[in-house]
Design a protein around this nucleic acid. Sequence first.
DNA 1: TCCTTTCAACCCCAATACGC
DNA 2: GCGTATTGGGGTTGAAAGGA
Length: 277
Amino acid sequence: MDRVIDIENERHELNEWVLKSIELFENTPYLDNLLEVYPLESAIPVHLEPRLKRRIISAHQGRRTTELIEILQGEVKFPYDEPLAFMIKQVLYCLEKNPKQIQRIANTLYAMEAEELIIHLESAPKLNTQMGPMFTTWLRKNFNLLNSKDFEESSAGIFILSSSETEGKDFVNNKLSQNLRKRPDLVAKVNNTYIIGEAKWIGRSGGNQNHQVRDVLDFCKEQRGAVIRIGIIDGFPWAIRKLNNSIINDKANVLVQESPYDIVSSLLLNDYLKSFL
DNA sequence: TCCTTTCAACCCCAATACGC
DNA sequence: GCGTATTGGGGTTGAAAGGA
């Protein structure tokens, strides 16, 4: 995607908070510091019970396909990316009438050694699927929380609304006259100014990631009344250069970096909110 | 309390765009 | 014109919230 602003020579034209975020990525141990917000742990294999493990190995070596599939259906995840996995685990008599599919799956399973099969079954869970709630947890731990009544009445200092999804959505839509279908990730108040934000971790470029970025920008675009809408984005979109030193012009990066709206790394959120004091 | 739905992340692949 | 990079669209996953 073409850049409108020359990132090498016209940086000063970028949004102030966008520029701070880019410089954070460039000049500090940004990803290390980000562990505070997104505390990724090492991916550790999940070991199976010895008895279950013996049953699997025995069924595999004895080529007892029915028994093996029953175990995969109820007790463990699939050892490979099987398109029918979800249906096999959910739908009654899913495979019984479909011998070709059973044969195909059996061939796949027997193409592996029993030991190999076990290694796949014990593989570490995907870390990315655990990142969803991390931002909210960090927010609650690092800022002052108030229930909706005290939040509404506050008029000095920085506070975050503490509420359930439904209550938060109602507060934002009814009291603050917004039009959101869910509670924003951030509902903050600095003195008498309300600030709401959508937070995203974007680890790489690609179709769905661009979609996420567009969601944030669309959210910011619809500023309503005196409430300020911001984006809180972390990860790849702040990067400028590839391994070969060429400029990154991926859609997500260009859209975020040239955003006229305030978009910040979560590591700058406190500074951002303080700027309204 | 248990089950279902929602949400937010990623991966993979094919089609298209781009650069030489 | 061909090979590589980017984009867009499909799909999977696990945790938390919401509902029965």
